[in-house]
Write a protein that binds this DNA or RNA. Structure first.
Length: 229
DNA sequence: GCGACAG
DNA sequence: ATCTTGTCGC
Protein backbone atom coordinates (compact mmCIF):
# COMPACT_ATOMS: atom_id res chain seq x y z
CA UNK A 1 0.00 0.00 0.00
CA UNK A 2 1.27 3.49 -0.84
CA UNK A 3 0.94 6.05 1.91
CA UNK A 4 1.27 9.73 1.04
CA UNK A 5 4.08 11.45 3.01
CA UNK A 6 1.75 14.42 3.37
CA UNK A 7 4.48 17.02 2.87
CA UNK A 8 8.20 17.56 2.57
CA UNK A 9 10.02 16.10 5.57
CA UNK A 10 13.42 17.54 4.67
CA UNK A 11 13.05 20.72 6.64
CA UNK A 12 15.04 22.87 9.02
CA UNK A 13 13.84 23.33 12.61
CA UNK A 14 12.51 26.76 11.69
CA UNK A 15 10.59 25.40 8.71
CA UNK A 16 9.29 22.55 10.86
CA UNK A 17 7.80 25.00 13.33
CA UNK A 18 6.09 26.95 10.55
CA UNK A 19 4.76 23.69 9.11
CA UNK A 20 3.35 22.70 12.49
CA UNK A 21 1.41 25.96 12.74
CA UNK A 22 -0.22 25.27 9.37
CA UNK A 23 -0.90 21.57 9.94
CA UNK A 24 -2.38 22.24 13.38
CA UNK A 25 -5.28 24.00 11.66
CA UNK A 26 -6.24 20.70 10.05
CA UNK A 27 -6.53 18.79 13.32
CA UNK A 28 -10.10 17.64 13.92
CA UNK A 29 -11.26 17.39 17.52
CA UNK A 30 -14.41 15.30 17.54
CA UNK A 31 -15.81 12.16 19.17
CA UNK A 32 -13.63 9.18 18.28
CA UNK A 33 -14.71 6.24 16.12
CA UNK A 34 -17.95 4.62 17.25
CA UNK A 35 -16.88 1.06 16.57
CA UNK A 36 -13.30 -0.20 16.59
CA UNK A 37 -12.34 -3.62 15.24
CA UNK A 38 -8.63 -2.95 14.82
CA UNK A 39 -6.43 -0.71 16.94
CA UNK A 40 -2.76 -0.09 16.18
CA UNK A 41 0.07 0.99 18.46
CA UNK A 42 3.16 2.75 17.12
CA UNK A 43 6.51 3.50 18.69
CA UNK A 44 10.08 4.22 17.64
CA UNK A 45 13.38 3.02 19.02
CA UNK A 46 16.96 3.97 18.17
CA UNK A 47 20.26 2.15 17.76
CA UNK A 48 23.81 2.88 16.66
CA UNK A 49 24.08 5.79 19.05
CA UNK A 50 20.85 7.21 17.67
CA UNK A 51 21.90 7.00 14.04
CA UNK A 52 19.31 4.34 13.13
CA UNK A 53 15.59 4.71 13.78
CA UNK A 54 13.36 1.65 14.08
CA UNK A 55 9.60 2.14 13.95
CA UNK A 56 7.25 -0.60 15.06
CA UNK A 57 3.52 -0.82 14.45
CA UNK A 58 1.45 -3.57 16.04
CA UNK A 59 -2.15 -4.13 14.99
CA UNK A 60 -4.46 -5.66 17.60
CA UNK A 61 -8.04 -6.88 17.43
CA UNK A 62 -10.55 -5.06 19.63
CA UNK A 63 -11.80 -5.79 22.22
CA UNK A 64 -9.71 -8.97 22.43
CA UNK A 65 -6.47 -7.02 22.13
CA UNK A 66 -4.90 -9.99 20.36
CA UNK A 67 -1.98 -9.18 18.03
CA UNK A 68 -2.95 -9.46 14.35
CA UNK A 69 0.07 -8.06 12.55
CA UNK A 70 3.46 -6.55 13.33
CA UNK A 71 5.47 -4.40 10.94
CA UNK A 72 8.85 -2.74 11.27
CA UNK A 73 10.82 -0.13 9.34
CA UNK A 74 14.51 0.74 9.74
CA UNK A 75 16.00 3.99 8.45
CA UNK A 76 18.79 6.45 9.16
CA UNK A 77 17.57 8.92 11.79
CA UNK A 78 16.63 12.04 9.76
CA UNK A 79 16.33 14.74 12.41
CA UNK A 80 17.79 15.48 15.86
CA UNK A 81 15.73 15.30 19.01
CA UNK A 82 14.40 18.76 19.73
CA UNK A 83 11.60 19.14 22.29
CA UNK A 84 8.51 20.15 20.33
CA UNK A 85 9.79 18.75 17.03
CA UNK A 86 9.73 15.03 17.84
CA UNK A 87 7.50 14.12 14.88
CA UNK A 88 10.13 15.23 12.36
CA UNK A 89 12.50 12.70 13.90
CA UNK A 90 10.11 9.76 14.22
CA UNK A 91 7.23 10.06 11.74
CA UNK A 92 9.13 9.44 8.49
CA UNK A 93 10.07 5.93 9.56
CA UNK A 94 6.72 5.39 11.29
CA UNK A 95 4.89 6.13 8.04
CA UNK A 96 7.00 3.54 6.24
CA UNK A 97 6.15 0.93 8.86
CA UNK A 98 2.46 1.84 8.63
CA UNK A 99 2.29 1.43 4.89
CA UNK A 100 3.43 -2.15 5.25
CA UNK A 101 0.20 -3.07 7.04
CA UNK A 102 -2.15 -5.28 5.06
CA UNK A 103 -5.17 -3.45 6.48
CA UNK A 104 -5.74 0.00 7.95
CA UNK A 105 -6.53 0.36 11.68
CA UNK A 106 -9.72 2.05 12.91
CA UNK A 107 -7.70 3.82 15.58
CA UNK A 108 -4.03 4.48 16.31
CA UNK A 109 -2.41 4.93 19.71
CA UNK A 110 0.84 6.83 19.37
CA UNK A 111 3.72 7.09 21.82
CA UNK A 112 3.99 10.81 22.65
CA UNK A 113 1.65 13.80 22.83
CA UNK A 114 -1.38 14.61 20.69
CA UNK A 115 -2.50 18.25 20.98
CA UNK A 116 -0.74 18.63 24.34
CA UNK A 117 1.97 20.50 22.49
CA UNK A 118 3.14 24.15 22.24
CA UNK A 119 1.59 24.46 18.77
CA UNK A 120 -1.07 21.77 19.27
CA UNK A 121 0.68 19.36 16.93
CA UNK A 122 2.40 16.64 18.92
CA UNK A 123 3.44 13.48 17.06
CA UNK A 124 0.01 11.83 17.41
CA UNK A 125 -1.83 14.85 15.99
CA UNK A 126 0.73 15.15 13.19
CA UNK A 127 0.37 11.47 12.31
CA UNK A 128 -3.40 11.81 12.23
CA UNK A 129 -3.42 14.84 9.93
CA UNK A 130 -0.99 13.19 7.51
CA UNK A 131 -2.76 9.81 7.37
CA UNK A 132 -6.32 10.90 8.03
CA UNK A 133 -6.61 8.22 10.70
CA UNK A 134 -8.13 8.76 14.18
CA UNK A 135 -5.20 9.02 16.62
CA UNK A 136 -4.58 9.35 20.34
CA UNK A 137 -1.43 10.65 22.01
CA UNK A 138 -0.11 8.50 24.86
CA UNK A 139 2.71 10.28 26.64
CA UNK A 140 4.73 8.67 29.44
CA UNK A 141 5.72 12.11 30.69
CA UNK A 142 4.68 15.75 30.32
CA UNK A 143 5.80 18.12 27.57
CA UNK A 144 3.76 21.18 28.57
CA UNK A 145 0.80 21.97 30.80
CA UNK A 146 -0.14 22.02 34.47
CA UNK A 147 -2.22 19.58 36.45
CA UNK A 148 -3.18 18.31 39.86
CA UNK A 149 -1.99 14.83 40.74
CA UNK A 150 -4.85 12.40 39.99
CA UNK A 151 -6.07 9.90 42.60
CA UNK A 152 -4.00 6.76 43.13
CA UNK A 153 -6.59 4.25 41.90
CA UNK A 154 -6.75 2.95 38.35
CA UNK A 155 -9.02 5.16 36.28
CA UNK A 156 -8.41 8.35 38.26
CA UNK A 157 -7.99 11.39 36.00
CA UNK A 158 -7.08 15.09 36.12
CA UNK A 159 -7.29 17.69 33.34
CA UNK A 160 -4.01 18.85 31.76
CA UNK A 161 -4.20 22.63 31.33
CA UNK A 162 -2.16 25.12 29.30
CA UNK A 163 -2.84 28.80 28.66
CA UNK A 164 -6.15 28.43 30.48
CA UNK A 165 -7.26 25.68 28.08
CA UNK A 166 -7.60 21.94 28.41
CA UNK A 167 -5.01 20.16 26.25
CA UNK A 168 -5.20 16.64 27.65
CA UNK A 169 -5.86 14.35 30.58
CA UNK A 170 -3.51 12.90 33.18
CA UNK A 171 -4.63 9.30 33.63
CA UNK A 172 -3.76 6.69 36.24
CA UNK A 173 -3.91 3.50 34.16
CA UNK A 174 -2.93 1.27 37.07
CA UNK A 175 -2.90 1.57 40.84
CA UNK A 176 0.00 3.58 42.28
CA UNK A 177 2.01 3.98 39.10
CA UNK A 178 3.09 7.18 37.35
CA UNK A 179 0.15 8.50 35.33
CA UNK A 180 0.04 8.76 31.53
CA UNK A 181 -0.55 12.00 29.61
CA UNK A 182 -3.41 11.35 27.21
CA UNK A 183 -4.38 13.87 24.56
CA UNK A 184 -6.45 13.77 21.37
CA UNK A 185 -4.49 13.40 18.17
CA UNK A 186 -6.78 13.67 15.13
CA UNK A 187 -10.51 12.85 14.89
CA UNK A 188 -10.79 12.13 18.64
CA UNK A 189 -11.55 14.30 21.66
CA UNK A 190 -10.63 14.33 25.36
CA UNK A 191 -13.38 11.96 26.44
CA UNK A 192 -12.93 9.40 23.69
CA UNK A 193 -9.13 9.52 23.98
CA UNK A 194 -9.29 8.59 27.65
CA UNK A 195 -12.05 6.03 27.13
CA UNK A 196 -10.25 4.20 24.32
CA UNK A 197 -6.96 4.31 26.20
CA UNK A 198 -8.50 2.66 29.25
CA UNK A 199 -10.37 0.19 27.05
CA UNK A 200 -7.00 -0.88 25.62
CA UNK A 201 -5.30 -1.15 28.99
CA UNK A 202 -4.89 -4.47 30.80
CA UNK A 203 -2.75 -5.24 33.83
CA UNK A 204 0.07 -2.90 32.85
CA UNK A 205 0.71 0.82 32.96
CA UNK A 206 0.86 1.17 29.17
CA UNK A 207 -2.13 0.33 26.96
CA UNK A 208 -1.51 -2.96 25.09
CA UNK A 209 -1.01 -1.47 21.59
CA UNK A 210 1.71 0.87 22.86
CA UNK A 211 3.25 -1.70 25.15
CA UNK A 212 3.58 -4.22 22.34
CA UNK A 213 4.93 -1.69 19.85
CA UNK A 214 7.38 -0.54 22.53
CA UNK A 215 8.63 -4.06 22.99
CA UNK A 216 9.25 -4.52 19.27
CA UNK A 217 10.76 -1.09 18.66
CA UNK A 218 13.23 -1.49 21.52
CA UNK A 219 14.16 -5.10 20.73
CA UNK A 220 17.91 -5.10 21.31
CA UNK A 221 18.89 -7.59 18.67
CA UNK A 222 17.90 -8.42 15.14
CA UNK A 223 14.14 -8.95 15.18
CA UNK A 224 14.26 -7.32 11.79
CA UNK A 225 11.61 -9.67 10.51
CA UNK A 226 8.16 -8.67 9.40
CA UNK A 227 5.33 -10.92 10.47
CA UNK A 228 2.69 -10.98 7.78
CA UNK A 229 -0.15 -13.31 6.85
C1' DG B 1 18.10 36.21 31.13
C1' DC B 2 16.33 31.69 33.43
C1' DG B 3 14.08 27.37 33.64
C1' DA B 4 11.54 23.54 31.11
C1' DC B 5 11.92 20.28 27.80
C1' DA B 6 7.37 14.07 24.42
C1' DG B 7 11.30 10.45 22.79
C1' DA C 1 15.64 7.44 23.21
C1' DT C 2 19.99 4.82 25.06
C1' DC C 3 23.87 3.09 28.39
C1' DT C 4 22.79 -1.45 32.13
C1' DT C 5 22.01 -6.04 37.12
C1' DG C 6 20.27 -6.61 40.70
C1' DT C 7 16.89 -5.34 43.74
C1' DC C 8 12.91 -3.26 46.53
C1' DG C 9 7.90 -3.44 46.86
C1' DC C 10 2.96 -4.88 46.00
Amino acid sequence: MHLDPGHDWSVTPQEAIALQRTLAERVLLQPGPKHVRRVAGVDTGFADHGRTARAAVVMLSFPELAPLETRIALEPTPFPYIPGLLSFRELPVVLHALEKLSMLPDLVLCDGQGIAHPRRLGIAAHLGVVTGLPTIGVGKSRLIGDYREPGMEKGCVAPLMYANQRIGTVVRTRRAVRPLFISPGHRTDHGSAVAWTLACTGRYRLPEPIRMADRVASARRGSEKNAVP
